[in-house]
């Protein structure tokens, strides 16, 4: 858990309590770390740290430090949250004896908001309000860290997209804006011609859907031939179309993703790839159109039930072959 404090007054050190005064708010952010190596972690949220004073200076206790030199420090998290606390130290000072355990020491709050405002050089009130809205803190902080003279136009576009659609993830939005040319390179000429007629927010939603489907496929499938013409490819196309349908509509998604397949065949059985992609695109759109409320789960279910199709008998480079057939994904 990462805790960010927003002090509303100057903090003062209280020597007797070895702590700080704190008035303001704090935001808790779950962070994923591998904590399996932390052996001194307890289920009540407390962590014990062993310090050794042998040799005259305090240092982390190693295996050779004897009991006479060891000091145990406990750090405990309040289950109810909040931003206050104190530290305690001393041999055997257990968490249950500590009525006011520390969370973390309040730290200086980096001026992310002001940095972002300075970087964007904008007087757009809606954007300024978004920056100063604490509900947007994490996205604002990411924007502040990313912002520089080269990308501040992208950041402004991303914030405008978020203002229009609160469901979009800031980092995904920035990613597709920064890599838009790569996405354009992936499109067929017909698809690109239609894409260029869309509003910026529609373009972002279409590309973010593609990115999310890609990221999930990367997470779930490993081999090249799963990702190209294999089960991963089937999954990605269905998820892409379902997500895009939920954001820009089934009709527009159908037009764009069908045009995506408009390419002259580049090798003898290339058309089998197109058949497979079109099939899975349709399944994805149908899943949304049939009222899906959990797209990812429903796509996974369709995948497990064999409602999607992949190509069997791929060549070593994953291309379709003479004997490739559309095969249900549960086989």
């Amino acid at each position: 858990m990462l805790i960010t404090y927003f002090p509303e007054s100057t903090m003062e050190y209280i020597e007797a309590h070895n702590s700080y005064t704190f008035q303001g708010t704090s935001v808790f952010e779950a962070i994923e770390i591998d904590s399996s190596f932390i052996e001194n972690k307890y289920i009540d949220g407390c962590v014990e740290n062993y310090t050794c004073s042998w040799g005259g200076t305090d240092h982390p206790a190693g295996g050779n430090c004897t009991a006479a030199y060891i000091t145990v420090d406990w750090t405990c998290a309040n289950s109810g949250g909040g931003g206050s606390g104190s530290s305690s130290s001393g041999s055997g000072n257990s968490p249950s004896n500590n009525p006011d355990p520390i969370l973390t020491a309040p730290t200086y709050n980096f001026p992310f908001e002001q940095n972002l405002i300075d970087c964007l050089e904008t007087d757009n009130l809606a954007i300024l309000e978004w920056i100063n809205n604490s509900a947007n803190f994490f996205q604002m902080r990411d924007a502040s860290k990313l912002c520089n003279a080269d990308n501040h136009d992208f950041i402004i576009e991303a914030i405008e997209a978020l203002l229009e659609d609160g469901e979009l993830e800031f980092n995904d939005t920035i990613y597709v804006l920064e890599n838009e040319q790569d996405y354009r390179n992936k499109m067929s000429d017909d698809e690109l011609a239609l894409f260029d007629t869309l509003s910026t927010i529609q373009q972002i939603k279409y590309l973010v859907s593609a990115k999310e489907a890609y990221d999930k496929t990367e997470e779930l499938f490993e081999t090249d031939c799963e990702k190209h013409n294999g089960k991963g490819d089937a999954f990605r196309h269905a998820l892409w179309n379902a997500l895009s349908s939920s954001r820009i509509g089934v009709g527009l998604t159908n037009l764009l993703t069908t045009r995506h397949e408009n390419n002259p065949p580049l090798y003898p059985y290339n058309n089998k790839e197109n058949q497979m992609d079109l099939f899975n695109n349709q399944v994805g759109r149908d899943i949304f159109a049939n009222g899906s409320t959990n797209i990812l789960q429903d796509i996974q279910e369709a995948f497990n039930n064999g409602e999607l199709r992949y190509l069997s008998n791929q060549a070593t480079n994953c291309w379709a072959t003479f004997s490739s057939q559309l095969t249900p994904t549960n086989l």
């Binding site: 067929s188 000429d189 090249d224 990702k227 397949e261 580049l266 790839e273 992609d277 291309w319």
Partner: peptide, 23 residues
């Protein structure tokens, strides 16, 4: 990517192949 194309005279062409993978 294994696909051979030939050109002569004056030409302008775009080759695009969907290909998901890491090869």
């Amino acid at each position: 990517n294994g696909v051979k194309k030939q050109f002569f005279g004056k030409f302008e062409y775009k080759f695009r192949m969907d290909y998901y993978g890491g090869m």
